[in-house]
């Protein structure tokens, strides 16, 4: 199918057409109050995310990408609108249910890795596996990201790319249904960026984990299933690459 921009283009790829979405956002808004100033960061977003797909979100700085991702991952709540996960209304979850949701369904990968400095690589992964219901072995997860020989290194002893690999292993190890990556290569050089993105792409394909990623990388855009563009808190366009 040809690339293009238009309303119809943000529909899911043909491969996902007949499946119920894993995540569905209905008219989601998010407003922040900074002192007396009211800032509308997300202004009515409708979006469906399908199991197994790799969805890219891009947009200008301040367009609300991270806020949207945070709401999908249950670490922030919309000011209005509804989010469904697997048919359940996420926005109606209690604090406890949201915690359970994050614990068992979601894996986060952040721009600045957010590793705990006082823990080694394997321990940083264990932070996630210790509370997950069906995690993989920490060493195995680190092996998967190519850090099988760096298990006992502290973050300060690892390069940026290696630290992000630990973060990926941490997200991956609990076998989440949804992986959310917030500019995972934003702090990395070009070469490392390539490697990390390849790794994430491989994980998406091999584990069939649904992946939503904020990135400016054109390389990944090329291999993603679909992309949406966010501008000024609204989805202004998108495209999908793969046909079923």
């Amino acid at each position: 199918m040809a690339d293009g921009i238009g309303e119809e283009m943000i529909m899911p790829g043909a491969g996902f057409k007949n499946v119920a979405p894993l995540v569905r956002l209905e008219n989601v808004c998010r407003t922040f109050f900074m002192g007396e100033v009211e800032v509308k960061v997300i202004r009515g977003v409708d979006l469906e995310i399908y199991a197994g797909e790799l969805l890219i979100i891009h947009g200008e700085s301040g367009s609300g990408k991270s806020t949207l991702l945070n709401m999908i991952g249950g670490i922030d709540r919309p000011s209005s609108g509804i989010i469904f996960f697997n048919g359940n209304e996420l926005t109606a979850y209690s604090e406890k249910e949201l915690t359970e949701f994050r614990r068992n369904q979601v894996g986060f990968i952040f721009q600045f890795y957010n590793l705990i400095p006082s823990l080694t690589a394997v321990e940083n992964v264990r932070v996630a596996t210790e509370i997950a219901t069906n995690p993989m072995d920490e060493a195995e997860a680190l092996e998967l990201v190519g850090l099988g020989d760096r298990l006992d290194y502290f973050p300060s002893q690892l390069s940026g790319g290696q630290q992000q690999r630990v973060a990926i292993a941490r997200a991956l190890a609990k076998r989440p249904r949804l992986m959310l990556c917030d500019e995972p290569t934003g702090a990395l050089d070009h070469e490392t960026t390539e490697k990390i993105l390849q790794l994430l792409h491989r994980i998406n394909k091999e584990t069939e984990t649904t992946m939503v990623m904020i990135t400016h990388s054109s390389a990944l855009l090329a291999v993603s299933d679909r992309s949406v563009t966010l501008s000024d808190g609204k989805i202004s366009g998108g495209r999908h690459r793969r046909a079923g």
């Binding site: 949701f101 994050r102 996630a128 941490r170």
Partner: peptide, 14 residues
């Protein structure tokens, strides 16, 4: 701060 956020994002309860 960010460690607290990460832990909560990972599914640790408040």
């Amino acid at each position: 701060r960010s460690v607290i956020g990460t832990l909560k994002a990972l599914g640790y309860s408040s």
